[in-house]
């Protein structure tokens, strides 16, 4: 089955899921049916297509070992050490899960996550992930373009920005008992960033449902921005008029800008951003402008001073 769209990130026929991934896809669907409750999945949603995005990881960029991607995480809701989320995220209980979409939309509402995703075609997208701390991974996500989901709620003219919120529940997210950051975790995008075809609402990775520590059951993936922009375990999406506050921005405004685009020429006060260590590699390598997605996204920032709007 070949699916086509005007989406620049849509796959060419030659890029349709190879056999191994097809098998993974079956695994995902099997797992997905159980965990996401997609038992009455329409045929459309049962198809995972693979998008090898232009500007995405080169052939040499093999996906990071799954154990590393699920065992080395920043998810302060479960502790501030990298190994904490894997150890502690069993308390999350991602099912049932409801996401509220509200604000400047004609049809606001709260939907179960499976109803949020069901009408769309799940895609596998292999994206680079660059953490602001100077390490990087390559991760095969499964999800749907955020813009397709938002379109169903019919954004109005007042929708200039999109604000996202993680669950607030210290019982299920024990890290929230300490005010290391302002809870709930908040992130935001400009509307054109949110509507960009690369911006993904992910429900799976490595052919399976998202593990709790990676942001189950639904998270954002914005591959040209530092990882902390890709908010996890989302419960609220608000379309708003003004630029929304973000958790890291409130914590240290001089360090974490609203845009936080991957940019090797603008250093973070704590880290040079010129290079990165791919997890699993001994040597560092050069970080690419917009994390290698400049061809697709540089236009969003034409005329902006990226040193000022970092």
């Amino acid at each position: 089955m070949i699916l086509r769209s005007d989406d620049p990130s849509a796959p060419k026929p030659s890029e349709i899921t190879p056999k191994a991934l097809y098998l993974d896809r079956r695994r995902f669907i099997a797992a997905g049916v159980a965990a996401l409750g997609l038992s009455a999945v329409p045929a459309k949603a049962a198809v995972v297509i693979r998008s090898t995005v232009p500007g995405g990881p080169a052939v040499a960029d093999k996906p990071t070992a799954r154990d590393s991607a699920t065992g080395y995480n920043n998810f302060y809701e479960f502790g501030t050490d990298k190994e904490d989320p894997q150890r502690n995220a069993h308390t999350l209980r991602p099912d049932p899960w409801s996401v509220r979409v509200e604000g400047a939309v004609a049809k606001p509402g709260a939907l179960a996550v499976e109803d949020l995703i069901r009408p769309h075609v799940l895609e596998e997208r292999v994206y680079r992930l660059r953490c602001v701390e100077g390490w990087s991974m390559v991760i095969p996500w499964i999800g749907v373009p955020l813009r397709d989901v938002l379109a169903r709620f019919e954004p109005t003219l007042g929708a200039k920005f999109v604000a996202f919120e993680t669950l607030l529940d210290p019982e299920r997210m024990p890290g929230q008992r300490r005010s290391v950051l302002e809870w709930p975790y908040r992130e935001g995008l400009r509307i054109d960033e949110a509507m960009h075809p690369l911006t993904l609402l992910a429900v799976g990775m490595y052919g399976e449902v998202l593990p709790n520590q990676n942001g189950a059951p639904v998270r954002l993936v914005v591959p040209w921005k530092y990882g902390f922009k890709s908010i996890k375990s989302i419960v609220r999406i608000s379309l708003v008029e003004a630029q929304p506050p973000t958790s890291w921005g409130r914590s240290a405004p001089g360090e974490y800008g609203f845009y936080s685009n991957v940019n090797p020429t603008v250093d973070h006060p704590r880290w040079s951003q010129a290079k990165e260590r791919p997890i699993g590699s001994f040597l560092r390598r050069d970080t690419l402008m917009f994390n290698g997605y400049a061809d697709q996204v540089a236009g969003l920032y034409a005329g902006m001073d990226l040193r000022k709007d970092f």
């Binding site: 070992a65 990298k82 390490w135 001994f282």
Partner: peptide, 12 residues
């Protein structure tokens, strides 16, 4: 380190 027990980012 020798046993691969230092996690995903052993140098760190």
């Amino acid at each position: 380190g020798a046993a691969g027990g230092l996690g995903a980012n052993p140098i760190e």
